[in-house]
């Protein structure tokens, strides 16, 4: 039983270890604000032949593709009274703003690229990007990793408990660590 559990603990760790590392790195990046400073600016302007029969979100997606970009488009973009459509295109580390004159097909895309740390932070909690099969697999890996992390924590407690000689010091570390963490969380939440 112990050997089987240890094998599962080890192999689950090998499968999800890279996620834990990314999770740790991205948390450091969030905590220190890495990746926000000095993003690269992106700017593209084109006059497009707008496909007929498309409007709203369908038109926004088509223009996004024609501008050589990809990412999710939040909301339901619609042109204003002057026929100008403003919307955003988002994906990890990239944030674009698109301004389209539906009458003439003039499209301007501008945005920021937050580079490596932007991608690392984007992978933290990524639930998918419209139109990207690869990016849409990440949430599965993330969600199973959460289960794996909980399982690894419980398994670790079991392996510690099995080592009689280390129970006392383990209790102290577990008790003091848990009490301090719980007090701090309660204080923050109230």
């Amino acid at each position: 039983m112990k050997k089987t559990l240890l094998n599962i603990h080890i192999y689950v760790g090998l499968v999800f270890g890279p996620y834990f590392a990314i999770y740790g790195l991205s948390t450091l990046a969030f905590n220190h604000g890495w990746g926000w400073q000095n993003p690269s600016r992106i700017s593209v302007e084109k006059t497009l032949d707008l496909p007929s029969g498309l409007e709203g979100a369908d038109l926004a997606w088509a223009v996004r593709d024609s501008l050589g970009s990809w990412g999710s488009i939040p909301g339901k973009p619609q042109p204003d009274e002057a026929g100008i459509m403003n919307y955003r295109v988002r994906r990890p580390a990239r944030e674009y703003r698109v301004r389209l004159k539906t009458g003439t097909g003039e499209a301007a895309l501008s945005g920021e690229d937050y580079g490596f740390w932007g991608v690392v932070k984007g992978l933290h909690g990524l639930r998918g990007v419209d139109g990207s099969a690869w990016a849409n697999t990440w949430w599965v890996y993330s969600e199973v990793s959460i289960w794996a992390l909980a399982f690894a924590a419980l398994g670790g407690v079991y392996f510690w408990w099995d080592r009689v000689a280390e129970r006392r010091i383990g209790w102290w570390i577990l008790g003091v660590g848990t009490a301090c963490s719980a007090l701090m969380m309660l204080y923050m939440a109230t």
């Binding site: 969600e143 959460i146 909980a150 924590a153 670790g156 570390i173 963490s181």
Partner: peptide
Amino acid sequence: IHLYTALALTLFVVMYALTGFVIY
């Protein structure tokens, strides 16, 4: 190192794991 850091941070690690479900 693997064991004791895990024990000290059990509540934080479990909190981040469980709250991950609230987000997902």
